[in-house]
Amino acid sequence: MHLAPRVLRRAVAGAIVALLATAVGCAPQPEEKAAPTASGSRANTCAKGGLATETPGKLTIATDEPAYEPWFKDDKPTNGEGFESAVAYAVAGQLGYGKNAVVWQSVPFNKAFAPGEKTFDFDINQVSISDERKKAVDFSSGYYDVRQAVVALKGSKAAGVTGVAGLRGLKLGAQVGTTSLDTIDDVVKPTRQAAVYAKNDQAKSALKNGQVDAIVVDLPTAFYITAAEVTDAEIVGQFENRGGAPEQFGLVLDKGSALTGCVSGAVDALRKDGTLARIEQRWLSDAVDAPVLK
């Protein structure tokens, strides 16, 4: 029996529609993207030992040279001794990288947070987190709460100062690009322009030679200077927290780095489980003994 042309066309059209519906129903559907984690990173990008690092399978960590105590010991970041070396290896371990998978790189302090693409995965070098620096680089969560301190030669006029007001008429010095220099300019507001040095070594030499009355450095560095480098100097005092969130050192990463969330997560975990506190107690235990300058 032959079908009428109109009936035949309807039958063929119906068959095609049915086949298309079946094909669409079986076609793979696009996967929903994973929701970002609280850190801004996706969970699967923080796979232990499998981060998108500069060198696959390795974690490249930078710091300045020389590497000073108490942050590092014997100018050897690779030995795991000193506060920042210990923190760096603890972060690496949290990320799934053993000591043999860590590669160290020398990067000058100011270059670490200058604009431009970085050759390291993160830098650890007593770099304080600030909104200005965040314009050029990313920071991890803070790994150390910082206080700035004043160091002067024993028996000097500066050594007898008990408050911020007493510092204003003095010649003060600090390393360029540091919050130590910011503290002089913004907190002390001296009547004489601060002396600025490329390195803390130059500031220490200026203090020993009488070119400045006192220098400002972070508190742990102040303890090391007075204990081992300029033994005829003493800590005049530390500056109090000016309210709000404390100044913190953070690990420096490339702007927009895919690792920022993972590295912050590692730092947060080390703070939560007490690791950072234990490392601080071992290497920076003296940092609570300086009088507060008000």
Rank of each mutant, 00 (worst) to 15 (best):
T119G: 07
I129Q: 03
K99F: 09
G98Q: 13
D131K: 15
Q126K: 07
T119C: 09
Y89D: 02
N100Q: 15
W104K: 09
G96F: 07
S85F: 07
V102P: 00
V102F: 00
S130V: 09
A86I: 14
W104N: 08
E84W: 05
G116R: 15
F83H: 14
V102Q: 08
T119L: 05
L95V: 12
A114T: 15
S130E: 09
Q94V: 08
S106F: 11
Y89A: 03
N125D: 13
D121N: 13
V103G: 01
V91L: 04
Q105D: 10
Q126I: 06
F83A: 02
P108M: 00
G96T: 05
N100C: 11
G98A: 11
K118T: 02
K99Q: 11
F122A: 01
S85D: 10
G82C: 04
D123L: 08
E84T: 13
Y89G: 06
N100D: 15
V103Y: 12
D121G: 05
G116S: 14
N110K: 15
G96N: 03
V91W: 06
G98R: 13
I129K: 10
Q105H: 12
S130A: 12
Y89T: 06
A88E: 06
N125G: 10
A92K: 13
V102N: 00
F113P: 04
A88T: 14
D123M: 03
E132Q: 15
I129E: 00
Q94I: 11
T119H: 02
Q94H: 13
E117H: 13
D123A: 04
V127N: 02
Y97W: 11
A114N: 13
R133P: 01
Q105P: 04
A114W: 06
E132C: 10
E84Y: 07
S106W: 11
G93I: 01
G98N: 11
S106Y: 12
Q105V: 12
Q126Y: 07
G96E: 06
S130C: 08
K99D: 08
K118N: 02
V127W: 00
K118P: 05
V87P: 00
W104F: 15
S85E: 09
Y89C: 00
A112I: 05
N100H: 14
Y97M: 03
